Simulated scan of single mutants.
Amino acid sequence: MNPFNKSTGRVVLGGAGWSRQIVTDPTSKPVLQTILHALSLGIRAFDTSPYYDPSEILLGAAFSDPALTSKYPRSDLLLLTKCGRITANDFDYSPAAIRASVRRSLDRFSTTYLDVVFTHDVEFVSREEALGAVKTLFEMRDEGYIKHVGISGYPPAVLADIAVEIRQKLGKPVDVVQTYCHMNIQNTTLQRSLGRFYGDAGVGIVLNASPICMGLLRKGGVPIGELGDFHPAPRGLREAAAKAADWVEGQGENMASLALRYAVGTFASVDEKGLGVTILGGGSIEEITENVETVKKMLKMEDNSVEALDLRDYSLFDEEAYKKDEPLFKGVRDILGEWIDYTWDSPDAAFLEEREKRKNQEK
């Protein structure tokens, strides 16, 4: 099953921009006004997580506000959230915890159903835990609390393995997979797993999150929020990205804009279902406006004889626009050099070591 169609468009607005990982004081942001602006531009799908504290609380309040509900019917929106990840090192995939998390999300959004619920960063738990959590979400889908079930995480190949195992052992596929930092100007390895997602795993749609690699692919480097520097990119990759950003600026361009154009265009061109849905960042009116205008540069309308109403009218990959950017794309990738398609470990060695210590203590 696939929740995305022409009425929802190719873009999801991510909620991490209202988390303490990204900004120092998310509660100071005008969230309702920002969401209303995103809706006015044509964005209809929104993704968050309890782990992005306090993003889900802030977004839930916005989507429960009469100023929004009086103008945008619930049936016109896609609300996506996650479950299972509590903090950076704590996960609870037990059936009771999954149910409690979903119910809490329903309450926060003042809704009777959620369009998609993902298990958050599923590669951090055992396969038994992963399958148990997805089984619980399938049950909640049957009960009407969830429309679509998904899994999310970092490594596409691992997510594909898990998705295939879910279909084999639970007898049905997950509807949606969300992966991040694997379809951008530095790393395009998501493409290698698309065949398995849409083939053996039977997944309905794959979402590409973090098209600028969690802020790495921009002038100024990774964002630093209340929780400090959380980004796992090593020094060499950061230095190469900074060098590339300087080069792009010297060409009269903006690194973040170019990286977003690359991610949107490349994914739209290679996604086997012709959808190429990208999760955008943006925690302010200015950022969202800029990102939407950037996305529109890589897409075109089906019918140019009519006037576009909003972002959803831009549904087709614009190959001609992409080709114009190819010299810049090549220049950046040449500078990144050895760091092209580099991936970090997820989970990393420190997490695995800590988990092993906990297991030994529990014996």
Rank of each mutant, 00 (worst) to 15 (best):
103 R>C: 06
139 E>A: 09
363 K>H: 13
202 G>N: 07
221 G>Q: 05
94 S>A: 01
46 F>C: 09
234 P>T: 01
327 P>F: 02
15 G>Y: 04
84 G>R: 06
245 A>Q: 11
29 K>G: 09
76 D>G: 10
14 G>F: 03
298 M>C: 08
247 W>T: 04
120 H>N: 06
95 P>M: 02
70 S>A: 14
338 E>M: 08
260 L>Y: 07
297 K>D: 12
147 K>F: 07
93 Y>I: 01
60 G>R: 04
214 M>L: 11
28 S>W: 04
96 A>W: 00
48 T>R: 12
304 N>W: 00
198 Y>N: 13
215 G>C: 04
265 G>A: 06
174 V>D: 01
359 K>S: 14
288 I>G: 10
223 P>G: 08
82 K>P: 15
296 K>A: 11
321 A>F: 02
170 L>G: 12
324 K>N: 09
167 R>M: 02
43 I>S: 12
177 V>M: 05
292 V>C: 14
338 E>Q: 04
236 G>F: 00
267 F>Y: 15
291 N>Q: 09
363 K>V: 13
284 S>I: 06
296 K>R: 15
84 G>P: 12
115 D>G: 02
50 P>I: 00
31 V>I: 13
332 V>I: 13
338 E>K: 14
9 G>P: 11
33 Q>D: 15
22 I>Q: 11
351 F>V: 00
92 D>K: 07
210 S>F: 04
198 Y>L: 03
249 E>K: 09
122 V>Q: 03
344 W>E: 06
363 K>N: 13
200 D>R: 09
246 D>P: 00
287 E>F: 02
87 T>P: 09
267 F>N: 12
297 K>T: 15
131 L>C: 05
258 L>H: 11
227 L>C: 03
354 E>F: 11
207 L>I: 14
41 L>W: 05
45 A>D: 05
5 N>K: 08
312 R>I: 09
308 A>C: 04
289 T>F: 07
285 I>P: 08
303 D>V: 06
19 S>Q: 07
